[in-house]
Amino acid sequence: MKEKVKVAIIGCGAIAQKRHLPEYLANPAVDVVGYFDNNLSRAQALAQQYGGHAYTTLAALLADPQITAVSVCVVNQAHAAVAIQALKAGKHVLCEKPMATSWSDCQRMVQIARQTGKKLLIDHNQRLIPAHQAAYRLLRQGKLGHLLTFKTTFGHSGPETWSVGGKNPWFFDKKLSQSGAIFDLGIHKIDLLRYLLADEIQAVWAQTATLDKHSPDGQLIGVDDNAIGVYQFGSGVRGTVIASWTYYGPQENSTYIYGSQGVMKIQADPQFPLQVIFRNGQHMNYQWPTSKVRSSGVIAEFIQSIQEDRPTILDAAQILGSMQALFASLKSARTGQIVSLNPA
């Protein structure tokens, strides 16, 4: 029987409490042994509830030799610094998205992971959704014929509806987040399209806007609450990515891919998470059994990659192209110009 992986949580906010920690606790191959947060009481509360130790400093946590791996769930601006510090301390790292807030930091993170020989995974859970993995396989089989266009949307009512910060979450603070909906939601869809199409983005035209989110003083927040981009891939396939914090009705998290033989609809129908509708009228509908335990699959993938010492589709090196396209999107939004990329 393999030895359990001893894990610590760095940053004990909502994403740690609602996603990382429950999946670690449900995984029989894991012992959660430590927590750190700049708000010590938050770390102490988790330690008291679930066991383990609340560290008073990040350095103390990283110096503990029993800890094998960490989840980095801090604010966007701190992702790179904390992940690099953990890698240099000999820890395997699962880092929340976006990987970092600058292209140079992303490259540096991958470089340090290679130098230390430690795992560095980025939490792009959309790659592991069953409908997306099935879609990937069908696309490789050429079910849609020659691929032409796509449209994908990720929108909800904003992080203030679930973040520990309530109506004024850190996501709204440009110093901590650097950007808004495009960093929070847009990166998921940019990365998903790279994964599904097995191709790299060559050009982007994007716009960002702050339309409705306000800070406590009544002023519009300093980051975008909506973003839209047009992306062209190396194969010539092109389409739109929309990210929004102002979808005040039901959340939307859908993707449509159009080919010469039909259309693939992903997470667009509540009954069938994946549908392929051919131009001759034939339908292929896919369903998966529902589970009482909601799992992204990311934690299991992280732990297995450590225990089996194997690569994974969540490796940071595979996410670099998504981050390059994200930063190109921001440049396009600033300049109003189409931005061409040289794939990483």
Rank of each mutant, 00 (worst) to 15 (best):
A135S: 10
A198M: 13
A54C: 05
G11S: 04
I67M: 06
C106M: 04
D225Y: 03
Q337K: 12
N76H: 11
A60W: 05
S41Q: 15
L128C: 09
L211C: 08
I129V: 13
A80R: 03
G142S: 08
N168K: 02
A268R: 10
S41D: 14
E23Y: 02
I10S: 01
D64E: 10
S291N: 11
I266N: 07
G281P: 02
K167M: 11
Q337Y: 04
I182C: 11
N125K: 14
K143Y: 15
D173N: 10
G90C: 01
I306R: 07
T255P: 02
D225L: 02
G336R: 05
S235V: 05
G51E: 04
C73L: 05
K6Y: 09
A209F: 04
S177Y: 00
G166H: 01
Q307A: 11
D64N: 11
Q115T: 10
M264C: 03
V241W: 08
G51Q: 03
S177V: 00
Q133K: 10
R334N: 12
T116K: 03
Y248E: 08
A86M: 02
R108V: 07
E23P: 04
S260L: 07
V339C: 05
Q287L: 09
T208Q: 12
A59T: 14
D64P: 10
A203D: 04
F171P: 00
G11V: 00
H146E: 15
F278N: 13
I299M: 13
A78Q: 13
T240K: 11
Q141W: 09
V70D: 06
V33G: 05
Q85F: 08
S177G: 01
A206H: 03
E96Y: 00
T56Q: 12
H53N: 09
Q251K: 15
N253Q: 11
Q219W: 05
N39A: 12
S254Q: 12
E200N: 13
A328R: 00
A89E: 01
F272I: 03
K2G: 14
P250M: 14
W103I: 06
K213T: 06
Q271L: 13
